[in-house]
């Protein structure tokens, strides 16, 4: 039997949940890449590489960090802004990092403005509109993140990552668990560390994202 791997799509309409295909969540101190459990350090390196390779590397902060529920949430927001600023500093000409909020989960029917927000019920609209080829969810409640990651995998070629505060996400192509301010800052350090060592995939990214 071929082992299922969580890879950039478009997989097909209604892709299976990765968990149902045998993908397991990482233990503390680990992450996963394409469904394979790896040491967390390896996940940092790969996440930084993916950001630096992408034409439109994007952070999607969710309600858990966009709204200042408590001091911890506000600090995470600061760390996310730092990560975004680091990305902007480290990318090469032609790459366009973005920071697009997911303010809440209302299935905004019949339309959202994909230029300024992403909605978990039709995330593909924002991905397609902005030609996003690599993204990271941070501060999105797990059930909405899973739904959204699955839709993205089903209908787009975007590489998805999750900085999850709980146990991680099988439906992302790369996932951290137990997200904290320190982990977000560490990822920013990795991006800085790999600056200039990764060749951006500018031409292929465009065609991948518009699939």
């Amino acid at each position: 039997m071929i082992q299922y791997r969580v890879l950039p799509g478009p997989e097909h309409f209604l892709p299976p949940s990765a968990a149902s295909m045998g993908i397991c969540l990482p233990n503390p101190g680990e992450g996963h890449i394409n469904g394979v459990i790896v040491p967390e350090e390896k996940a940092y390196e790969e996440a930084a590489k993916q950001f630096l390779m992408a034409k439109v590397p994007t952070l999607f902060p969710g309600p858990l960090v966009l709204w200042a529920w408590n001091e911890k949430a506000a600090k995470k927001a600061t760390a996310i802004r730092h990560l975004y600023n680091t990305l902007k500093e480290c990318v090469q000409p032609g790459q366009t990092p973005m920071l697009i909020p997911m303010p809440d989960y209302r299935p905004k029917y019949p339309k959202i403005n994909p230029e300024v927000e992403i909605n978990p019920n039709h995330p593909n609209l924002t991905i397609w509109h902005n030609k996003i080829d690599c993204c990271m969810f941070i501060g999105v409640h797990c059930h909405q993140a899973n739904l959204s990651l699955k839709i993205i995998r089903g209908g787009t070629a975007c590489y998805t990552m999750a900085m999850c505060a709980q146990a991680g996400h099988e439906d992302a192509m790369l996932s951290f668990r137990d997200a904290s301010v320190e982990k977000i800052m560490k990822l920013a350090e990795w991006v800085k560390k790999l600056k200039g060592t990764v060749q951006p995939q500018l031409t292929s990214a465009k065609s991948r994202a518009s699939n």
């Binding site: 902060p61 966009l66 709204w67 200042a68 506000a74 927001a77 600061t78 996310i80 697009i100 909020p101």
Partner: peptide, 8 residues
């Protein structure tokens, strides 16, 4: 709204 993400 978290201050650092208010503008987005």
């Amino acid at each position: 709204i978290s201050e650092d993400l208010y503008d987005i």
